[in-house]
């Protein structure tokens, strides 16, 4: 019995280890290849670790494009979108969950509509609207649309689900203790919503960080580019990718987020799971 159990465990470990390969190998390959000279990148047999360790590609990343600037663009846009979404979604989510104002159901239908409309669908009219107000080739569309448009509807929905589950008694007690609506939201509901806020924050950050269609539609000058867009621009005169440079840039993009994730993976994963189940 015990023997068969441990044999089963061994089989499960083996299965999981094999399954890990496609999840781990690309990242490994990306990082190691970025340190290989061009000649070694396509060498056969392939080398798991760079035989010759070079960092030229990293220097070239910053020479060919204003990469630091692009990095900053992506970062500040993602932070702005995340901050704004946390504020506006939690306010709206709270109101929809807790304040019984006339028309709440109708207005909530609007949120559900936003939830179901892929933002790609409206990219043509959005482009025209931002063109009309002179905001094409600025970061405004990349900040405002994710923060307040269709992508934010999901976040408002998640927050509403969370606040609906908070005990009413807490708010009654707070009213007797002398808090008004905003104070109840700010001092009672928000502190208790930390897990939901964390999940919403992570989702929103990753969403903004990954955006690709919107930047290539809205942005045209390299110093305005965001990272995903910049990554695809490391090409030679014939449009072929400069692999070692592209991989170095990709590593620079991916590694910081991966490191944060590995450190905080528990909060990350459990926060998402928690909110997913509630929502």
């Amino acid at each position: 019995m015990i023997k068969s159990r441990s044999r089963l465990a061994l089989a499960l470990y083996a299965l999981m280890a094999v399954l890990c390969i496609p999840f781990l190998f690309p990242t490994w390959w990306m990082i190691t290849s970025s340190f290989k000279p061009v000649s070694e990148i396509f060498a056969f047999p392939p080398t798991l670790l760079p035989r010759q360790f070079v960092t030229d590609a990293y220097g070239r990343v910053f020479e060919l494009q204003p990469f630091a600037r692009q990095y900053f663009n992506s970062l500040y846009i993602a932070v702005a979108v995340t901050t704004g979404t946390l504020a506006f979604s939690s306010l709206a989510g709270y109101a929809f969950a807790r304040i019984r104002f006339p028309g709440a159901n109708l207005l909530f239908m609007l949120v559900l509509t936003g939830l179901l409309i892929p933002s790609e669908v409206t990219i043509v009219p959005l482009f025209q609207m931002f063109l009309d107000v002179g905001a094409v080739n600025t970061h405004w569309p990349l900040i405002l649309v994710p923060m307040l448009g269709a992508p934010s509807a999901l976040q408002t929905f998640i927050m509403r689900q969370f606040f609906s589950g908070l005990p009413h008694e807490l708010e009654d007690a707070a009213r007797i203790d002398g808090l008004g609506r905003f104070a109840i939201y700010h001092r009672i509901a928000l502190p208790l919503a930390k897990p939901a806020l964390a999940a919403v924050g992570i989702f929103t950050f990753l969403y903004s960080w990954n955006l690709y269609l919107e930047p290539i539609v809205f942005l045209s000058s390299p110093d305005k580019f965001t990272l995903p867009q910049a990554l695809t621009q490391f090409v030679d005169a014939y449009g072929g990718p400069m692999w070692n440079i592209q991989l170095a840039a990709a590593s620079l993009t991916a590694i910081p987020v991966l490191v944060v994730f590995v450190i905080a993976q528990k909060q990350f994963i459990e926060g998402l799971a928690y909110t997913g189940l509630k929502g």
């Binding site: 999840f23 690309p26 995903p228 695809t232 991966l258 590995v262 993976q265």
Partner: peptide, 23 residues
């Protein structure tokens, strides 16, 4: 294992696609 299986979610989408195109 959970961390490994989840990790691609946090890798930038375009970076991920570039690596796979390379592979």
């Amino acid at each position: 294992f959970r961390t490994i299986f989840f990790s691609p979610v946090v890798v930038s989408l375009v970076a991920w696609a570039i690596v796979w195109r390379f592979l």
